[in-house]
Structure formats: C-alpha cells, structure tokens
C-alpha cells in the first residue's frame, strides 16, 4: 500500500463517524482538508468531481472514491471507500443487532417511530436545497427549473409510475429550454 493510499485511508476513517447526515454533511470538511490543508486536489477538480458524483446515479457518498482515485489511483479508491464506509457499516450493524435484541421494547418502539418525522423532514430539506441550487440562470430559466421541480414533485407524490419518467422528462425539457 502506497503512502498516499494510507493517508487517504486514515483521513476517511477519521471523517466517517463525523458524517451525520451522509457524505453531503462532510463535504465542507473534505474541502478544507483535501483542497486547502493537504492540497491533494485543486478547487476546480474538487467541484467538478462533486458535480459528477451528484449527477451520476447512486449515493453521493461515492464522491469519496473520486478523491481517493485522484490522489492514489486504484489503491486510493479502495482506501477511501473502506475508510469512509467501513466504520458506518460496523455501527449500523451494531445498531441493527441492538434493535433486534430489544424488539418489543416500548422505549425502542418510541425511539424508532420518533425519528421518522425528523428523517422525513430532513429528506424534504435535501430536496428543497437541491431545488434551490438548480433554480439558476435568467429569470425564465429559473421559472422553467422551478416548474420542472414542481411537476416532478407532484408526479412522484401522486402517481405510481416510475420516477425515471420525470427524470427523463426533466432532462429533455432542460435540453429544450435551459440552454
């Protein structure tokens, strides 16, 4: 294992358990360390990598693999994923074990049910923040962007059709109206 890959592993191990709220919550800290302190990546490469990870399918957490790859190739990629996902895997495993052992306990039931509204509120907030970031450009483009978001919201909320249609539709409308 190269020295760079080792550094990547240690860095993401330390960051992993601080990332409450997922990778997005840890992005400011990643930027501070990776771009400013250690200068592993330029600001532009960092932003581009983040935009790609957000645009690609799958969890945004895979952005850490882009950093790992950039700094230390295939070894860095593996080190970043193991470092960032390993501790959260173990913690989730432990919590799942505990909740199974305590199944039927009234306090656990209240805890589980009580976290649901907070989680859904945070999911809605993620959508709203992304919607705000996507509503950019001229005032016409902002209106188009918001209309796409609103239509997509209603489509996914009220219909049983796959959300893939709203994503494709949004892409086509973007192609026509957001250039």
């Amino acid at each position: 294992m190269t020295a760079e890959a080792w550094d990547i592993l240690v860095f993401f191990l330390k960051l992993s358990l601080l990332a409450v709220g997922g990778a997005n919550a840890a992005v400011p800290e990643m930027h501070r360390e990776v771009v400013e302190t250690r200068q592993w990546m330029s600001d532009a490469t960092f932003s581009q990598g983040y935009a790609l990870a957000a645009a690609a399918p799958g969890p945004n957490v895979l952005f850490v693999a882009v950093i790992g790859w950039h700094v230390a190739g295939a070894q860095g990629l593996a080190a970043s994923l193991i470092g960032f996902l390993g501790p959260t895997f173990l913690l989730s495993w432990a919590v799942a074990m505990l909740t199974q052992r305590l199944a039927g306990d009234a306090r656990l039931a209240a805890l589980r049910a009580g976290l649901v509204p907070v989680a859904i509120g945070l999911i809605l907030a993620t959508g709203l923040v992304t919607a705000g970031a996507s509503a950019r450009g001229t005032s016409i483009e902002v209106t188009v962007a918001l209309l796409i978001t609103l239509t997509s919201t209603i489509f996914v909320w009220r219909s049983d059709y796959s959300p893939i249609w709203t994503l494709l539709g949004g892409g086509v409308l973007g192609l026509l109206l957001l250039r």
């Binding site: 957000a54 645009a55 859904i120 999911i123 809605l124 993620t126 959508g127 709203l128 992304t130 919607a131 970031a133 996507s134 509503a135 962007a145 918001l146 796409i148 978001t149 609103l150 239509t151 997509s152 919201t153 209603i154 489509f155 996914v156 909320w157 009220r158 959300p163 709203t166 994503l167 494709l168 539709g169 949004g170 892409g171 086509v172 409308l173 973007g174 192609l175 109206l177 957001l178 250039r179």
Partner: peptide, 23 residues
C-alpha cells in the same frame, strides 16, 4: 443542459418521495 433539467426533476423526486411517505 440535459443534466441541469435532470437535476431539477431529481430535486422534485426527492420532495415528492418525502410527501409520498408522509401521506
């Protein structure tokens, strides 16, 4: 442009999904 439109729709998808769960 395509990715921009998709990003707008994806934001709506996340909101719609949250509302769907709540409903």
């Amino acid at each position: 442009a395509f990715m921009h439109g998709t990003a707008c729709a994806a934001a709506g998808m996340v909101i719609g999904n949250g509302l769907r769960m709540s409903t």
